[in-house]
Measured scan of single mutants.
Amino acid sequence: RTRTSFTAEQLYRLEMEFQRCQYVVGRERTELARQLNLSETQVKVWFQNRRTKQKK
């Protein structure tokens, strides 16, 4: 599997969503992935990694 390189715009949007809600599921995840031109899996994993980073 190749590592995803997020654009600055994608990271900004993901961070904004994370500040709003640390868990994104269902339709929200589908819509966010579509808007950012990413897969739902990429969005899901980004949120998982971001929550892990916050715990440290």
Rank of each mutant, 00 (worst) to 15 (best):
Q10P: 02
L32V: 03
Q42V: 09
Q10E: 05
K55N: 14
E28P: 09
L14A: 02
F47V: 01
L36H: 03
T41C: 15
T52P: 03
R1T: 04
G26V: 03
V24P: 09
K44M: 11
F18K: 01
Q54F: 07
F47C: 02
E9T: 04
F47G: 00
A33C: 06
Q19C: 08
R1G: 12
N37T: 07
L38K: 01
K55W: 10
T30Y: 14
Q22P: 10
T52D: 14
L38G: 01
L14F: 01
N37I: 07
S5M: 14
R3E: 13
Q54E: 14
R51Y: 11
C21H: 08
V24I: 11
T30A: 10
R51G: 09
E15R: 01
F6M: 13
K55Y: 08
T4Q: 10
T30I: 08
E28L: 05
K56R: 10
L32R: 01
M16C: 11
F18M: 02
E15S: 01
R27N: 14
F47E: 00
E31A: 03
E17H: 12
E31M: 04
R13F: 06
T41I: 04
M16D: 14
E15V: 01
N37V: 04
Y12A: 13
R27V: 12
T52W: 06
E28Y: 02
R50H: 03
K55I: 07
S5I: 09
F18I: 02
L38S: 06
V45F: 12
A33S: 10
E9D: 10
R34D: 08
R50Y: 07
E28W: 04
K56W: 14
Q35F: 06
V24R: 07
L11F: 09
R13H: 11
S5L: 09
Y23W: 04
T41E: 14
M16S: 12
S39D: 15
L32H: 07
T41D: 14
L38M: 10
R27D: 15
T2W: 03
F47K: 01
V45E: 15
E40Q: 04
R20C: 06
R34M: 07
W46G: 01
Q35D: 12
L11Y: 06
C21D: 15
T7L: 02
K44S: 14
S5W: 08
Q10W: 00
R34T: 10
K53T: 15
R50W: 00
T4V: 10
R27M: 14
E9V: 09
Q42E: 15
E15F: 04
L38R: 03
F47I: 02
Q42M: 07
R3Q: 14
N37E: 12
V45R: 09
Q48D: 10
K55T: 15
Q19D: 09
Q48G: 06
T52E: 14
T52F: 06
A8W: 05
L36C: 09
F6S: 02
A8N: 13
T2R: 09
